[in-house]
């Protein structure tokens, strides 16, 4: 007699995740949040260490032009710390970099997107990516030994013919290691970022509009002017801002090329100046006690500045990329 086999009891159907899934999701979510933690910690630690400086200097820390720690005969230490001069330098150098770098990058991106045959394009895009991977000290070395002699000559030309414009004037005809040359090196360093962001955005241009322009008999330039640029211009602005963020934070290349002097210098051709990042390196070696704290406070200023620029830039780029889909 056959034994009666009990049918398997029906499985319970549930949407509750298994333990393994819960562990997995928990771990991954936890790790995902870590980057937020790191970013917060960076801001927190730098602000905390720099707090004393912020408290004693107040708003003057951002606007002051003096950075000195004087010990009097009686051992009394008087500190005056202000990064104002270096903030001016940062903005000046980054402006040179943007004025030179952004038009070149946009031209290069247009060239790569609409003019080059496909096979060459792949190679050239790799070269642009490689440019982004070059160490910044390599740019510094090259800028100092190769670009500087040439750029000094260009600076002399600018000084000779354009010195009636205030920023091209100089107190003395000393053009080596000037913010202008540092700006040129930075321009080369931001080109890969701005180029690849612009190229990505140009590639998102709606194809039907491109083809419609051609079908109406537009030349390549007419097509770019009426379709690509109106579509991509805000994205290019975002790319330029990403470049600006990089230019603000660049340290080693600027320090190598520029004659870093703690002084407010509005003359871009004159060989003195600095930016916040290079100033930190300059003062770090001899800094003790309060000055170290002040340098960390300067680091905090730099951190907040680049963070704000980057967040704005990223949201602009993202919005443009989305509008193409």
């Amino acid at each position: 007699m056959a034994e009666k086999v009990a049918p398997p009891s029906p499985r319970e159907i549930t949407t509750k995740p298994r333990v393994s899934d819960r562990v997995f999701r928990g771990t991954v979510t936890g790790v995902g949040m870590l980057s937020l933690l790191i970013l917060t910690l960076i801001g927190l630690f730098l602000a905390l260490r720099g707090f004393q400086t912020f408290k004693s200097e107040g708003f003057h820390f951002l606007t002051g032009y003096k950075w000195e720690s004087v010990t009097s005969d009686s051992g009394q230490v008087t500190n005056t710390f202000g990064v104002g001069a270096m903030l001016i330098g940062t903005i000046l150098i980054a402006s040179v970099a943007l004025v030179v770098g952004v038009p070149l990058s946009v031209l290069c991106a247009l060239f790569l997107s609409f003019y080059v045959p496909d096979r060459l394009k792949k190679l050239l895009v790799s070269v642009v990516d490689l440019m982004a991977a070059f160490p910044s000290i390599l740019y510094g070395l090259w800028g100092y030994f190769v670009l500087m002699p040439m750029a000094e000559y260009w600076a002399k030309l600018l000084y000779k013919y354009l010195r009636w414009i205030p920023i091209f004037d100089a107190p003395q005809p000393f053009f080596e290691r000037s913010p202008f040359i540092a700006g040129l090196v930075l321009a080369i360093m931001i080109i890969p970022i701005v180029t690849s962001v612009s190229r990505e955005i140009f590639a998102q241009t709606p194809l039907d509009r491109v083809q419609a322009a051609y079908a109406l008999g537009a030349t390549r330039w007419a097509m770019i002017k009426t379709v690509v640029l109106p579509f991509g211009s805000s994205g290019v602005v975002g790319g330029a801002m990403l470049g600006l963020g990089r230019a603000f934070g660049e340290t080693v290349a600027v320090f190598t090329v520029l004659n870093v002097v703690f002084k407010a210098n509005f003359h871009i051709l004159y060989g003195a100046g600095g930016n916040v990042a290079s100033m930190i390196i300059l003062k770090w070696g001899e800094a003790v006690g309060d000055e170290t704290k002040a340098l960390l406070a300067a680091g905090f200023v730099l951190f907040v500045l680049t963070l704000l620029i980057n967040l704005a830039a990223n949201s602009i780029v993202k919005r443009t990329l989305k509008s193409g889909k």
Partner: peptide
């Protein structure tokens, strides 16, 4: 994305400070 924009000098300062 914000983290990828942190200047390298700030990363160094942070590790020093922390």
């Amino acid at each position: 994305q914000a983290m990828s924009g942190v200047p390298s000098v700030v990363a160094g300062l942070f590790i020093f400070a922390s």
